[in-house]
């Protein structure tokens, strides 16, 4: 994967040929193009706005990343965001006296429980993740409607402190960005420096081999789906608080964006390869595109098409580059 042969040659050693490097270059190129149309786009304030907009996507994509890494997929993240966000908002509406941080915690716990349910069915029912999460995608969404009785929770029904959760700021950076950073750092640590994290890679790489070296697949499956639910729960609270509204359709179709972020970030959909920084960059890439569309005068209705095309292209690049790598390895071995 080397789109800019000249530039990439300047980068030495490990940086060369890595997905993260080319993504950073691609993002810079994208920013440059948009800046030509609208010089204000790369101002510090706007950049912070884009990162803020993308923080939720970053969190949930990282949860999705672990599931895809193990060779699965979690299609229910959008519905988990919707359900836990709605539950937290209803709790906030019903009893404004409860501190916002407790409501936040409740949202995370609900998301975690939903994720654990997914993990339980996958791990103990031996059902493919795509089918389980396809089912819970509708079950969770339906439960959201049941819980809310079809009603919305609007801004004036939420407490000030609840809506402050993502909006408040620390050292001039919004809480939402801090949350995104916290999740990123924690999951980077999990993936690279813990036994469980490496076991996820092992399962995704070769399930049978992983089993023979003593990786407990059930435990890992429970962990990754619970994790995906946990970040979705956090994202649900942040989403409803940020937009000051809990609607029943919150985050419908969001699962595609999270998978897209992973794929653009170089995660193989077949599992076993990919890394946290790539996923974060992939999510930021999507965030920049979404924010750039109105600037270059394209209607938001183009978003779906552009996103789909980018995902297809990124997957094509992933497939071809991994094939080229395999080919190269084979030739090295033969010579």
């Amino acid at each position: 994967m080397n789109k800019f042969p000249l530039v990439a040659k300047l980068n030495m050693g490990k940086l060369k040929g890595r997905r993260e490097t080319s993504l950073v270059l691609l993002i810079l190129l994208l920013l440059a193009i948009v800046t030509l149309r609208s010089p204000g786009f790369v101002s510090g304030k706007n950049i912070q706005r884009i990162v803020n907009d993308t923080s939720i996507l970053v969190m949930v994509s990282l949860g999705q990343f672990f599931v895809i890494l193990a060779g699965g997929i979690d299609l229910s993240v959008g519905s988990m965001i919707g359900l836990s966000g709605m539950a937290a908002s209803l709790m906030n509406e019903a009893n404004p006296a409860i501190p916002a941080i407790v409501v936040l915690l409740a949202g995370v716990v609900i998301g975690t429980a939903l994720g654990t349910l997914n993990g339980f069915i996958v791990a103990f029912g031996k059902v493919p993740p795509i089918i389980v999460t396809l089912g819970t995608l509708s079950v969770f969404r339906g439960l959201t409607f049941v819980l809310s009785k079809g009603q919305w929770v609007t801004a004036h029904e939420m407490t000030e402190s609840y809506m402050k959760l993502p909006h408040g700021n620390l050292f001039g950076i919004s809480n939402l960005i801090w949350w995104g950073l916290l999740v990123s750092v924690a999951l980077y640590y999990l993936s690279n420096y813990t036994r469980s994290g490496r076991e996820v890679y092992a399962i995704g790489g070769n399930k049978t081999a992983a089993k023979f070296v003593g990786v407990n697949e059930r435990k890992i499956n429970m962990m990754i789906f619970t994790l995906s639910g946990m970040v979705s729960g956090l994202a649900g609270v942040m989403w409803t608080a940020r937009y000051a509204a809990a609607v029943n359709e919150t985050a419908t179709g969001f699962e595609l964006q999270t998978v897209a972020a992973c794929v653009i970030g170089g995660v193989s959909i077949a599992g076993g390869s990919g890394a946290v920084p790539g996923v974060i960059l992939g999510a930021l890439f999507i965030g920049i595109i979404n924010n750039a569309l109105p600037v270059i005068n394209l209607s938001p209705f183009y978003q779906l098409l552009i996103q789909g095309a980018i995902v297809l292209f990124a997957m094509l690049v992933n497939t071809l580059s991994s094939r080229r790598r395999a080919h190269k390895l084979l030739q090295e071995r033969l010579s």
């Binding site: 795509i130 959909i269 183009y302 779906l304 996103q307 789909g308 297809l312 997957m315």
Partner: peptide, 19 residues
Amino acid sequence: PAIAVTLATQSIFRGIPQA
């Protein structure tokens, strides 16, 4: 993988009429 391709074309095929 079929799941990957059709996940992308899910957006592309619907993205055209939407655009």
